[in-house]
Design a protein around this nucleic acid. Sequence first.
DNA 1: TTTTTTATTATAGCTGATATAATAATATCA
DNA 2: TGATATTATTATATCAGCTATAATAAAAAA
Lengths: 225, 225
Amino acid sequence: MSSAKRFKAYEAIADQLLQEITAKIYPVGTRLPAERELSERFSVSRTTVREAIRYLESIGCVETRAGAGTFVKRQDIRQIATSISATFLQGSALNCDLLEVRMLLDTEIATLVASRRTAEQLQALKQNVEDMQNDIEAGGSGAQYFDEAFHLLLAKATNNAVLSSLAEMCAGIYSYTVNLSHEVSGMPHSGLSQHQEIVTAIENRDVKKTRMLMKQHILKTIYYG
Amino acid sequence: MSSAKRFKAYEAIADQLLQEITAKIYPVGTRLPAERELSERFSVSRTTVREAIRYLESIGCVETRAGAGTFVKRQDIRQIATSISATFLQGSALNCDLLEVRMLLDTEIATLVASRRTAEQLQALKQNVEDMQNDIEAGGSGAQYFDEAFHLLLAKATNNAVLSSLAEMCAGIYSYTVNLSHEVSGMPHSGLSQHQEIVTAIENRDVKKTRMLMKQHILKTIYYG
DNA sequence: TTTTTTATTATAGCTGATATAATAATATCA
DNA sequence: TGATATTATTATATCAGCTATAATAAAAAA
């Protein structure tokens, strides 16, 4: 028989809409035609259109607000992270693998930044370390926040959108799984002094030292205490 | 007022089902309850259940076969790749970034494999190189296939599911974007001799040499000719 | 005039029903 | 036994109508 492809109305419609979105016929922020209009245009029922929209919604491409309409969304890497974390979670005991990847990525990121950072990026890193220090001295509880921000700043400083997205994604999946397993195990080690050393190495454009320091930092972060 | 959470029936149901799937209440391969059963269980209409299922389907979590039912699917990283490639494509000129990431990942992968490969994994790599050689000598056209398979074998040999998934994903996005831009530019350089050198270095567990060779290989692959 | 309230309108959200097609299980017949 | 027809189950697709929500316009109050 070899009926190669099975027709599913909502799939065809979702494909068509996605194509028009990527073609910027509906740019980010704009509203898609109302469901009733779309159903008329494609000559299908509103239900089918809605199923197609659910599809687009799940890939983070649009956002529907009741009473207002369906809007094209700037895709958020974090949302993707949670939606694909299920994939990584299907295997078991992957947290270890994930940590290895984070270590690998963060090390490469730091190395790249040490070689290509701009003065502004360096300044931002210094600011972050300073803010973290002030927060700790003031007895604040934002250490974890500043730590995350530190790694995010580094990722951005690579000027590589894909790389920084990947790092963000890994961090997102990691925090998602940690939240799932309720293992927020108290106060993590802040690692302030290590951040300071890393920034200094980056300031000096010392690629090798930066690499080494980041590797150690991640190792310590993993086995915190 | 202050309804902190926006209730959307289909979202709640999709969440619930996803949770039960990841909790292995519905393991891979099993069938979900029929739409009518689910609609009864959640006290919603079948339409709403269908929207929830569309959601799960689009994240590659289930697969519905008309007349048979909805089945839990082993998630395919490639499918995710294509579905999130739109995200990466929203930015412009990301191919360069993507290549940098591939280089980075493949280099790390080769390095890891050189240090932890098993005899069986080494054998598989040798077999791949041999097959490629035979294909080329026979005037076959499968060079690109064997090249992809080579990198895939390496990724798997890390024994790190996350890392190999990431590499696969990058390769998937890359080939997707390449296909989009219709730049299949003829016969790529097979890189057979480089593969052979790499495998030899891996056989000798020469981590540094493997790393260096892979870096060179990727560079040549990028600027092929 | 400015602000607040109310009504209108358009939208998505959801329902229950119907009809059709594909599939799987069962019963029938050779 | 083995092939075929029947039946039941299931998803697919549709429709008309209702509700809930949100943005806007009009009216009322300050």
